[in-house]
Design a protein around this nucleic acid. Structure first.
Lengths: 337, 337
DNA sequence: CTGTTAGCGCGTTCAC
DNA sequence: GTGAACGCGCTAACAG
């Protein structure tokens, strides 16, 4: 039999309204009675029921998170950013994995909305018509993180994947490379796949370098597919001299493929990854990459969501965070920069 | 103005009790009226309010998770196991990071309990008197994962860290090593620190090998401290010929320290890590380690919790999962095994 | 400064 | 099979 606000009120000889006031820090309570109430709360071990509070106040101080996979280092870091800011604003997070499965995503969003979360943070590969539809049925704010709404109807925070990829490839071009490989993600993946692919293409185009289909391999973001993609390049007569790999895990695979073939990184082939996950500074040679502020994406997205939830004035509809070329040892030093 | 069960009842021309029945799958409803209700639910876009339901039914179908740090690969994998099983049983999880800070842990547990979670999964370095105290004030089941209750009052699921470490060191001994180093975690850390340290000590003792303090370094589980610990060993006149490192991240650091010094793993020094996180199969040489079923720990702990929540009959108070020596390339092949 | 009184949206007896 | 009515524990006016 859990003890309720009534029990406290009775024991303290006040009304439940007063107890409610001290629990919620309402200043309109005489210090003496506040003290009395606090003491009996302590004595009885009263623990306010947040569910009842939620029903009455229509606020749960809980936000929902839909994410592809928490065991993916990248997302784990984003979630850490989210949770830190959430806890700073006294929100809890309900976390759910979607495996990038649209059915699952929609169902999870629905469940979260039923649980009356005060806001929702969505991360997923693609935002479809169905997503937009269910987003619109929500009566709470929704922010997309590391995800883009092509229709610009919902706020999102992300980096500019196109430009980031373009920067990476232009760096290779600037240091004289013409034979530049790409180990990409599935082109059906809008951001990490297609946008980065487009960036690669544009950089070559701008430099007047013809696109060579032999220099493009599609992977699945896993280590093995990086190995495999690079082994293909190594089998070519005319191998690329530099390879841009669209995520770090595959990039590490690519490095190992080169080393296993008895070649040297960066002397024989330069490699640049993408993301800057912890592993990139735990391999030899240290991986040069394009850093993406994972923690920051989560933190900013959550902060953005609190603004929407508190109806603070929002200036921008979308936040684009900055990426950065991180030069370590899998690319040669560029003295001309 | 969100639409409620009343709206549906009115529109469908039935009572709210009937709507409640169809929503909850109660069989005592004539198929015809069930159909009618279902249709108007669909038409109105009715979404049951889980908070109200929670208040009335005293169940939230939500469990609380307290974890040191979700951005740590090990815990991320455990949480993935938890969430998969949770979603299988239609539970959602509220996730919170404690950074192994006791104050924070206690406060988080309290918040979770206020939110009326149906159960709690706790992961932390140590279980103190204070933890036990607050656990006892909870009216819902609590299970510890990857954590041990020394007083055996609360159920937990974990591996046998002592035996695992002992096995690892005995393997070195069996293959002829006498000079065996240890890069440990803080000895104040009960499981990963102290138990593994004891296992190391016991293995030496059983083999009649004297303990050499010079061969023991304390790290903090991070890559850099693995580097540092190994650099110390390398500075010794009489270097260890094999080193047991109590987690993979430090083990990778140790390998790199050896390689940076121009020596070879495993020919000059053998290395074995602990945990078997993904990175251990993404480095060269591939890291030999002691595998710990991270996903399984999470999954089993969550399943265990559902049993407690559903008052199913529990046979065992505690679950010890099996560890395993995984031999890859940072240890020499043992042909005599 | 404090108490009274309505609900919040739904599950659940208990009659019918 | 179905409906009426109560209560879950708390917040939020509104009085006083």
């Amino acid at each position: 039999m859990p003890i309720t606000i009534y029990d406290v009120a009775r024991e303290a000889g006040v009304s439940m309204a007063t107890v409610s006031r001290v629990v919620n820090g309402n200043p309109n309570v005489k210090p003496a009675t506040r003290k009395k109430v606090l003491e009996t709360i302590e004595r009885l071990g009263y623990r306010p029921n947040a569910v009842a509070r939620g029903l009455a106040s229509k606020k749960t101080t809980t936000v929902g998170i839909v994410i592809p996979d928490i065991s993916n280092t990248f997302f784990a870091e984003v979630v850490r950013g989210i949770e830190d800011i959430a806890s700073m604003y006294h929100y809890n997070i309900i976390l759910s994995n979607s495996d990038n499965n649209v059915e699952k995503e929609l169902s999870l969003i629905n469940t979260l909305l039923e649980k009356q979360v005060d806001g929702l943070l969505f991360m997923g590969g693609e935002v479809t018509e169905e997503h937009l539809h269910i987003f619109k049925t929500a009566s709470v704010p929704i922010v997309l993180a590391a995800t883009k709404d092509p229709t610009h109807q919902f706020p999102y925070v992300d980096i500019d994947h196109f430009k980031a990829a373009k920067d990476a490839v232009e760096d290779f071009i600037l240091s004289g490379h013409k034979k530049i490989g790409l180990i990409s993600g599935p082109l059906t993946d809008p951001l990490m796949g297609f946008d980065r692919y487009k960036g690669y293409k544009k950089a070559l185009e701008d430099a007047g370098v013809a696109l060579n289909e032999e220099y493009i391999r599609i992977g699945d973001y896993r280590y093995e597919s990086g190995l495999k993609g690079m082994n293909y390049f190594l089998s070519l007569e005319d191998k690329p001299t530099a390879v841009f790999v669209v995520n770090d895990e595959m990039a590490v695979g690519a490095i190992h493929a080169i080393q296993d073939a008895g070649l040297n990184v960066p002397n024989d082939i330069e490699i640049r990854g993408f993301d800057n996950i912890p592993i990139s500074s735990m391999v030899r040679p240290l991986l040069s990459t394009v850093s993406q502020p994972q923690y920051g994406i989560g933190a900013v997205a959550m902060r953005f969501l609190t603004k929407h939830m508190n109806q603070e004035s929002i200036t921008e509809k979308t936040v684009i965070l900055q990426h950065q070329l991180v030069d370590r040892d899998s690319t040669k030093r560029r003295d001309n920069r």
